[in-house]
């Protein structure tokens, strides 16, 4: 069986700036794949291309062997590609509960949505306490939990996580990573995670890609990359 998601020589950018210069990656069903690299390497743009937020200029993105680049954002959501964007991007003036409802926007099974909301509250009890509060009033860690929970409400087949630990205290980040692993193990959610915290990402993922200025420079099982001297020097500060 082919890969769940394939990027094939993808080029993309903003205006005159070319950000991705031929990116090829693959994600298999059931995997956690990490994309690590320095600021500005193109990690976020890669996720934006997958969810059709940014159009491809060359190359293509395939979902289960079918072309998915060139369509709309909503098309990718319909396929089950759920993008939890960098900086959470919650609907700050809407309540926690409403944010979760928005995550289930395309679902038409209100009882199922309600029971999923209960499931999210079991997973993140803090959200239950604050369900009637404005999302903007939550702490950074709570916001990240809500962003992930909102993504899960759509029953993702592939969860794109962009910098979930950004700006969070180490203990909160660990909790987030632990949750991602649980979701992967217990519910089989496939995850493509972009992280600056290479150490944590390589500890979480099965496989990883290293990205530098718009190109993939290394790839392999996460455990191997963690021991690679170049990765150690550049990203793990060892």
């Amino acid at each position: 069986m082919g890969a769940l998601l394939t990027l094939d020589g993808v080029e993309a950018g903003y205006g005159a700036m070319q950000v991705l210069k031929g990116v090829s990656i693959e994600v298999q069903e059931g995997e956690i794949v990490a994309l690590i690299g320095a600021n500005g390497a193109g990690k976020t743009t890669t996720l934006n291309v997958i969810s059709n937020v940014v159009p491809v200029r060359a190359g293509r993105v395939r979902w289960r062997e079918e072309l998915s680049s060139g369509g709309s954002i909503v098309d990718t959501v319909r396929r089950g590609i759920i993008h939890v964007p960098e900086g959470r991007r919650l609907f700050a003036d809407m309540t926690v509960l409403e944010n979760l409802e928005m995550g289930a926007f395309l679902r038409h099974d209100p009882p199922g949505v309600r029971s999923d909301i209960e499931r999210m509250f079991a997973l993140f009890p803090r959200l239950q306490e604050r369900q009637e509060q404005r999302a903007g009033s939550l702490s950074g860690g709570e916001q990240q939990m809500l962003a992930i929970a909102r993504g899960l409400m759509a029953h993702p087949r592939l969860l794109l996580l962009d910098e979930p630990s950004l700006g969070l205290a180490p203990i909160i980040s660990q909790q987030i990573f632990r949750t991602v692993r649980e979701l992967n193990q217990t519910q089989g959610v496939t995850v493509l995670i972009v992280e600056q915290n290479a150490h944590a990402a390589l500890g979480l993922a099965h496989r990883a890609y290293v990205m530098e200025t718009g190109c993939i420079t290394m790839s392999g099982p996460a455990a191997e990359l963690r021991d690679d001297p170049r990765v150690k020097a550049a990203y793990l500060g060892e």
Binding site: S51, V53, S72, I73, V74, V77, R78, I82, H83, P85, R89, L90, F91, A92, D93, M94, M102, G103, F105, L106, R150, A154
Partner: peptide, 12 residues
């Protein structure tokens, strides 16, 4: 509040 993120929820 945020058009791009709304689209990421599947909102047309």
């Amino acid at each position: 509040l945020d058009r791009t993120t709304a689209a990421l929820m599947g909102i047309d």
